[in-house]
Design a protein around this nucleic acid. Structure first.
Length: 240
DNA sequence: TTGCGTGGGAACATTA
DNA sequence: TTAATGTTCCCACGCA
């Protein structure tokens, strides 16, 4: 949030802050241009456009539908409002690694809470996550965190949940250990390795086969967008 | 000895 | 308001 441009303001963002200020859905008058699309990471960047005048890792918000933008702003009303009241300038583009907090979905009313095992199941289905978490034996539901990148999975989980503090593997593992009481996930006597319960595995498999693999189906786009942005961000941090 | 991974108690926070 | 589900902090243990 520290390196936003100071020069220009996106009508989309202005509209978003109109929402915050007046508690009304934003009007959308401008059709966003669709040229300059960078080769996007899978199913993630359809909400973002590479900004032609900016650096290679900067994006412009594009095709967010009015109601969706309203939902997203509504999710993180506190941080957005705080920024608005502080006079923080809102650029029309921003670095990939500094996506505004208020575009990170919170889990509010009417949105089913994402469970940790669902997040892990998603991660296991995502080929881009294979360097963080992998199946050991898919049939029996045994999976393993990759030691080198296990903290990234945890950080992503923490961000996905909108936690106050950074999630660590240690804390996430504590949550995983709680699953052993219900048997949904049990620890395998092998380093960083856990196993999904057979019934849970079956259920998650059925969800994966659905066109809307995420639990919060009505917010599929927003969740998935954030999910992948965060992953890219973490990859970028890891590379530096 | 050290670092890492694991296990669990307990208090607290958030959400359906 | 309550139960469920984490989250956070802490300490202890085993292993290489």
């Amino acid at each position: 949030m520290s390196c936003w441009g100071q020069d220009s303001y996106s009508p989309l963002f202005n509209d978003a802050f109109e929402v915050i200020h007046h508690q009304q859905p934003p009007p959308f008058h401008q059709e966003p241009p669709l040229q300059y699309l960078r080769s996007p990471p899978p199913h993630s960047m359809h909400n973002l456009q590479h900004h032609p005048d900016a650096g290679s890792t900067q994006y412009q918000i594009l095709d967010i539908q009015p109601q969706r933008l309203h939902d997203m702003v509504d999710f993180n009303m506190d941080s957005a409002k705080l920024m608005y009241e502080s006079g923080v300038p809102i650029p029309n583009y921003y670095p990939e690694s500094h996506i505004p907090d208020f575009f990170i979905p919170r889990q509010g009313k009417g949105r089913k809470r994402l469970r940790l095992y669902e997040f892990l199941s998603e991660s296991l289905r995502d080929s881009e996550m294979s360097d963080c978490i992998q199946w050991v034996d898919r049939k029996s539901g045994v999976f393993q965190f990759i030691s080198k990148n296990k903290e990234k999975v945890a950080e992503m989980w923490g961000r996905r949940k909108g936690n106050r503090k950074t999630m660590t593997y240690q804390k996430m593992a504590r949550a995983l250990r709680n699953y052993s009481r219900t048997g949904e996930i049990v620890k395998v006597r092998r380093k960083l390795t856990y196993r999904f319960d057979a019934q849970l595995l079956q259920r998650l498999g059925a969800e994966a086969a659905s066109p809307y693999p995420l639990t919060d189906q009505s917010h599929y786009t927003c969740d998935h967008w954030h999910y992948n942005c965060t992953y890219n961000e973490l990859l970028q941090e890891g590379a530096t």
